[in-house]
């Protein structure tokens, strides 16, 4: 349905997006995961036709949307990271304005407004000015404004930034319903791994403007299939101890935090006995010790050497 081919963008000579290739099938929910500054928003801005790529192509059902931007605008809704709403207007007035400039009129417009408000649970507060809303309500209205014209593709750019858990769950549930019940194709960007894990069928992991991994959750986790993630809790943390752990055969990465060590090592490294022995040598006491199932966070750590929130 939608694909990008070697999509790149430079600002003042600096490449912020480099050769991004991604695709979305009809009705699919796809996540774009990456830390802040990875290039997710720029990629989405290019896909939604807000900015022109420096090079590369974007195709919607085979039609180049860079040459014909109207094609994708007509069938897509964009939920920007910022609250793109008029604070001095009510929710109803905001939706009426955006609906009208989508060329919706009369009953169609009225029905679209009420459906969108109902979908995000704001029908009771529709006459209130947006500036009186909580952060979560504004985020929900931000989504409603993108749903008015019943888009086939919904592009969401970090729609849950800075809101309370309840509103966040409401938004995630809304997106899930749109995808599963209405069949809306979703492109969801976030730096919250758990959101993407929960919502998306497939993922693209982005860092420094590049796609560094892609696939289903299982496919991505298989990157770590030859590895174990072991968490060790100690009574105190000794830097010499940490350095010596890194030298143990089979250990690939060690991350120290407070009194914990997160160790990624090759499967079957027989690490436990070596760690116990080393701790004794350093007069350290092992308080807790367990092997973890790898997560996408671990995948990202493995791929970039950093955590998503770095």
């Amino acid at each position: 349905m939608l694909e990008t081919i070697n999509l790149s963008k430079s600002f003042k000579g600096k490449k912020v997006v480099q050769d991004v290739n991604l695709y979305l099938n009809n009705g699919e929910s796809v996540g774009l995961l990456g830390p802040n500054g990875a290039g997710k928003s720029t990629t989405i801005s290019m896909i939604s036709t807000l900015i022109k790529p420096t090079s590369g192509e974007i195709k919607l059902n085979g039609v180049n949307t860079i040459d014909k931007p109207g094609e994708i605008r007509r069938i897509s809704g964009v939920v920007p990271q910022e609250l793109a709403l008029y604070q001095e207007l009510s929710a109803y007035e905001n939706l009426k304005f955006f609906g009208a400039i989508y060329k919706m009129t009369g009953k169609e417009l009225e029905k679209g407004i009420q459906q969108a408000l109902e979908f995000v649970g704001l029908e009771a507060r529709q006459k209130d000015l947006v500036k009186t809303y909580s952060g979560g309500m504004k985020r929900r209205l931000n989504i409603a404004a993108a749903l008015l014209h019943q888009p086939k593709i919904l592009i969401l750019d970090e729609p849950t930034v800075g809101i309370d858990p309840q509103s966040r769950n409401h938004i995630l549930e809304t997106v899930r319903m749109l995808n599963q019940k209405d069949g809306t194709t979703i492109l969801y960007t976030s730096h919250y791994m758990e959101e993407v894990e929960q919502l998306c069928d497939r993922l693209y992991i982005m860092d420094h403007g590049k796609i560094i991994a892609a696939g289903t959750k299982a496919e991505l986790l298989s990157i770590l299939s030859t590895e174990d993630t072991i968490k060790v809790e100690l009574n105190k943390l000794d830097e010499t101890f940490v350095e010596q752990v890194k030298t143990i055969e089979g250990v690939r990465k060690v991350e120290a935090s407070h009194l914990q060590l997160k160790i990624i090592a090759t499967k079957g490294s027989n690490l436990i006995s070596k760690l116990v022995h080393l701790a004794e040598q350093h007069h350290l006491q092992l308080i807790n010790f367990h092997t973890e199932t790898p997560s996408l966070e671990d995948v990202f750590l493995q791929l970039t050497g950093r955590t998503l929130r770095n």
């Binding site: 939604s48 036709t49 807000l50 109207g70 605008r73 007509r74 897509s76 964009v78 920007p80 910022e82 609250l83 793109a84 709403l85 008029y86 604070q87 955006f98 400039i101 989508y102 060329k103 404004a145």
Partner: peptide
């Protein structure tokens, strides 16, 4: 600043 101009641009108007 509040990105509503961008949202207007995306409506194809």
């Amino acid at each position: 600043r509040e990105q509503v101009f961008n949202r207007i641009l995306l409506t194809n108007s």
